[in-house]
Nucleic acid binder design. Structure first.
Lengths: 338, 338
DNA sequence: TTCAATCGGTTAAACGTTTAACTTAAAATT
DNA sequence: AATTTTAAGTTAAACGTTTAACCGATTGAA
């Protein structure tokens, strides 16, 4: 068996209480004893037993990371990257991360991940849009939670998110700066706050530059904003507005779909049309031409979410909104209109 | 606070030992008492404390699920599905799953996931190819582990895998059945056992049908078998063998890349060439035409891996190889040669 | 009829921590 | 010099289980 607190105490010549206090950064201990204890800890490669610690302190040391299965299975690894950010941050912290998915059509009464049933997490990260029913269930659990990359309209929760309005504005402004005037927007699942915010940013930018605009510049599909959706939306957009010179897709997946449509129909990027996406997924670089987009720092969203959750757990901090900055990434799919 | 074993014992009118024995399916208990206890458990929504249980029994109740970061971030959700299978199976079991990634260039001495450093898992699932250095490190930990969708050549380990040779054979045989004779193979990372097995199956099928064949029908790229790789491999293949009538891609990602190459060069599927992939990823259905492929039951791989691991943990079972059956899925990218 | 075996359960120790309450010595205050 | 305060550490109880050892009652064998 591996060393326990007794072994450390013996080796350092102190009581087990002292070892515990040192490890919990109690100020009552002199720096000399601290040094001795830490030395013994290192030499014995001692790690406190989570079970013992949890038993007495009622801390599980676990963090739940929850998202819907279809978000998890998305083709463009977006939420997986956010998870990675959290997981990486957790390596530095006291916590383990338990990843679980829920049904994207979760209803009250549906089976929950085990660690929720048993209340075996100290906090929860909810990534991406989840059914309101699920939020209701989680709220009743009395376990602290934070949202990342999504939060529900009603209610006031701690959340880590990007400024989607600003992103939409920036993307559109980029096209305007390139002298484009007829700029189409393709989106989907318009009830999703991120997407409606991006659309709002798009409209604001146009308005801000006094550009003519009407609803026929906008195509929004019903379902999930994926490649297939981008293809069909681009198609519809061209049927309505064949004279557009630029397209802003609400995310890169749709932009990729749109790109396929354009290729299939002999439309050249950037000869005939400029295209900008949103997210900055890996695939963008492989495209021909590489996609101009708004960079979303996914890893950072994950680490920030974990850090915020830690604060919520520790200080019982009040609802707080953390905005992670985004950035325009100019590649080759947008060009100045001549 | 939630109920503990004392509350249950009180309610059922027995000792806490009895409650514990019932919950651990000890045979010493009469069915009548068992019933009483179970009733009390249900009424109080009692869940044993993992900490307390772990403290006395030295069982953590955690399973580690480990894969390289680039496998986790793959565009086609393959390993995420395997994870999902394991996660779902774990809901029925006693265990929590801790997902962690390691660097795809992991070297001895690199930072390990926390739960490994602290030996806080009862078993490990290793998904996909991982560096040998990592396997060495894990072996020294004396924690049971199983491989899924990969295992190293040397050594004898418990593993859940598909029959890649058979898959390669089946795919090729399908093309042969459609009267194709000049069948190209595109692959990558040929050191990967799955891929070399598929190639072996391809060769066997050709040989089995006495078809003429030489190495120039085969193109293998150095790096990871992704879309970009499929594009370039298809290109090279056509430069060497412009008269092929069918292509077997070692996985769907490469098949998709190849499809793009074919489209870009005015080659029609299935008019000019038939194409078959391997894996059966979601994207296949969106393609034009939908891709014929070998279906790999990813969820099942995950559940089987978890189940096997449980057996290894419990019975200390000997190394065992579980073969999960694959299946040919005929869609529209392959057609009889006329 | 007596003794051993079996059945169905209980008692109590142990697991490895945390932390409130306590102790002792030294320093500061009166 | 006597008293109080502070600093630095120790003692011991508590957390909620599991499980070996134990116990009494019933059954079976001799």
């Amino acid at each position: 068996m591996s060393a326990n607190i007794k072994d450390v105490a013996l080796k350092a010549g102190v009581s087990i209480a002292t070892v515990s206090l040192v490890l919990n950064n109690n100020t009552r201990i002199s720096s000399e004893t601290k040094r001795k204890v830490l030395k013994a800890v290192k030499e014995l490669d001692y790690h406190p037993s989570r079970s013992a610690r949890g038993l007495v302190s009622n801390i599980t040391g676990n963090i739940g990371f929850i998202l819907t299965d279809d978000h998890f299975l998305k083709t463009e690894p977006f939420y997986t990257r956010i998870f990675l950010g959290s997981e990486f941050a957790a390596r530095e912290s006291e916590y383990y991360i338990l990843l679980a998915t829920i049904d994207s059509k979760f209803k009250e009464g549906d089976s929950l991940p085990r660690f929720l049933k048993e209340k075996n997490v100290d906090g929860i990260i909810i990534a991406g849009k989840v059914p309101l029913d699920f939020i209701d269930v989680v709220s009743k659990l009395e376990i602290p939670f934070v949202f990342v990359d999504y939060y529900p309209q009603q209610g006031d929760f701690p959340v880590v998110i990007i400024d989607n309005v600003k992103g939409g504005f920036t993307a559109t402004q980029h096209l305007i700066n390139l002298r484009h005037q007829k700029i189409g927007f393709i989106g989907a699942d318009i009830m999703h706050p991120s997407i409606s915010d991006r659309l709002y940013g798009y409209k604001s930018a146009l308005q801000n530059s006094n550009l003519y605009f009407d609803e026929s510049f906008i195509v929004t599909e019903e379902d999930y904003p994926n490649r297939a959706c981008g293809y069909s939306a681009a198609k519809k957009l061209y049927e309505k507005k064949p004279d557009i010179t630029a397209i802003f897709a609400c995310n890169d997946a749709m932009a990729i779909g749109a790109m396929h449509f354009l290729k299939d129909n002999g439309l050249k990027i950037t000869g005939d049309v400029s295209l900008i996406g949103f997210d900055d997924v890996e695939a963008d670089l492989m495209l021909d031409p590489p996609l101009t987009t708004i960079h979303v720092p996914k890893i950072e969203l994950g680490t920030e979410a974990l850090n915020l959750l830690m604060k919520v757990i520790k200080n019982n901090s009040s609802p707080k909104k953390i905005l992670v900055p985004i950035e325009l990434v100019v590649r080759e799919s947008t060009r100045k209109l001549n």
